[in-house]
Design a protein around this nucleic acid. Structure first.
Length: 477
DNA sequence: TTTTGAGTTGTTCGA
DNA sequence: GTCGAACAACTCAAA
């Protein structure tokens, strides 16, 4: 066994616990050098956007502090990755590089080339699964094909779940005692130049500690009622783990293990429903891996003929939360203010964009990519194709969410709408989700002048719904 | 190869 | 107000 140093190349696995790449490096007798390489140009259209960068900055900061407690420095370099790794190998005499696998098409391609290059230089290059319960190629139909329907996928995937305990975080770490060059985190300029992130700090704690805190809160207070609580955007009834999972501050294995450790009955309705959500995350990675064009193209080819609108004005109204439908606007404003949107509301705004406004799902996916702290290519792609009807296991075309009814159903007391659309705060519950139908006296008393304090609806629900159904009829055989 | 059962999250209409 | 049926085939996955 070599006693030369090993590089641990951190990417979307910014944690020390349940970290097989780190473990592999520790299992050798030489020193361990943790490395992060900033190379957004290598991810083409899907490099981290502004909100992801905010999270990334704080997550790297947290990782670096955890390593410091072990007396180890996180080395940060700029890309190209190939050059950065070669430099480090030369500077340290390392003879191995370990990392956690990612599943985005462009990243897979780059990693494959890197692995070949390293191996041709007699460097051990080894990747590990640290992000999924089941990797995309581990599950196939009896014909050996990828699944395109969630239920049979998840049934098959669950049979592959291992009961293995996640790895513990290291208590000590042997490293190189020299002065390797490192870019400072600040120099990467990941933070915004104008302070739009004020509300972010109240909402989020990026990093492994924050991820564990979010998990504990969820398992202590929420999971037993998750099935119903998750649908109420005015309450914190979801796990809010998505950005932590995206950056690998926590692994799904750790989540499942934590549920088992608490002796939760995984067949009970709450835990079971939550496991299914983890299953959708697995399924999204399965679909992205096997259908690598789906970030751009619909899985169902018929949708290439769909008559999408091209209307920058309505797109902008949607982005800014100015559609005149309170539940839609509340969601879009929550996204803008906090970098996150409640899942129920993501479906409502997605349905509204693709069906009421008939704007292409890709426009929605791009906006979410730019504004979400949990922006994740697999989840974002699957979600948008699902809601617009063109993807794997898509919602039936006639399922057009009614934004008034959804508001009444899931935000009955208006907590959510009043929080994000404060100009409607004094509108009574009865008219909160359809203020344009309220009697003039009600609006006057609530100090709302439609078209001035709050927009008139930019489309009529019934008309837009009929137009959407007609457009769907066009692409049917 | 053919057949069969089933499919995350909804809405509207009419009884 | 509540409830069940219709919405429309289509495709997937397994038997």
């Amino acid at each position: 066994m070599s006693t030369a140093p090993s590089l641990v190349w951190f990417r979307h696995d910014l944690r020390l616990a349940d970290q097989p790449a780190l473990q592999a490096a520790m299992d050798r007798s030489g020193p361990v050098i943790p490395v992060y390489i900033w190379a957004p140009e290598e991810e083409e259209d899907w490099a981290p956007a502004s909100c992801s960068r905010w999270w990334l900055h704080h997550s790297l900061d947290a990782l670096s502090q955890r390593l410091e407690l072990l007396g180890v420095r996180l080395i940060i370099r700029r890309g190209p990755t190939e050059v950065a790794l070669s430099d480090l190998i030369r500077e340290t005499g390392a003879d191995a590089v370990f990392w956690t696998r990612r599943y985005e098409p462009e990243v897979i391609e780059r990693d494959k080339q890197l692995k070949q290059l390293l191996k041709s230089q007699e460097i051990e290059a080894c990747s590990f699964n640290g992000a999924l319960l089941v990797e995309p190629w581990e599950v196939a139909t009896q014909q050996g094909k990828p699944y395109q329907v969630f239920t049979p996928y998840w049934k098959a995937a669950q049979e592959k779940l291992s009961g293995d305990e996640p790895l513990a975080a290291p208590e000590r770490l042997k490293t190189l005692n020299n002065s390797l060059e490192s870019v400072s985190l600040q120099e990467l300029n990941l933070l915004p130049t104008i302070p739009w992130d004020t509300a972010f700090h109240e909402q989020w704690m990026p990093g492994e500690t924050g991820a564990q805190a979010a998990l504990n809160r969820f398992l202590d207070e929420i999971v037993s009622d998750y099935k119903t609580e998750r649908d109420v955007p005015g309450r914190q009834g979801t796990s809010r783990l998505s950005p932590h999972l995206h950056f690998g501050e926590i692994s799904p294995r750790q989540i499942v293990q934590a549920m088992r450790a608490r002796k939760l009955n995984l067949s009970a309705i709450g835990p079971k429903t939550f496991l299914t959500e983890l299953g959708w995350r697995e399924f999204a990675h399965h679909v992205l891996y096997h259908f690598p064009k789906t970030p751009q193209e619909p899985l169902r080819a018929a949708f290439n003929e769909f008559p999408w609108n091209d209307d920058p004005t309505s797109l902008r109204a949607w982005q800014r939360g100015q559609t005149g439908y309170p539940i839609v606007d509340a969601g879009m404003r929550e996204l803008w203010a906090t970098g996150w949107m409640h899942n129920r509301v993501r479906m409502i705004v997605g349905s509204f964009l693709t069906k009421h406004l008939r704007l292409p799902w890709q426009a929605g996916a791009e906006w979410f990519w730019d504004t979400l702290v949990d922006a994740d290519l697999a989840n974002n792609t699957l979600g948008w194709q699902w809601i617009s009807g063109c993807g794997a296991d898509a919602a039936p075309y006639f399922r057009v969410f009614n934004p008034i009814l959804q508001g009444v159903k899931f935000d009955p007391d208006g907590t959510y709408v009043r929080r994000w659309c404060p100009e409607l705060a004094d509108v009574p519950d009865k008219w909160l989700h359809n203020p344009w139908e309220a009697p003039a006296s009600v609006l006057t008393q609530a100090r709302v002048r439609l078209g001035r304090d709050y927009p008139e609806p930019i489309v009529d629900h019934a008309t837009a719904r009929d137009a959407a159904l007609a457009a769907f009829a066009l692409i049917k055989k």
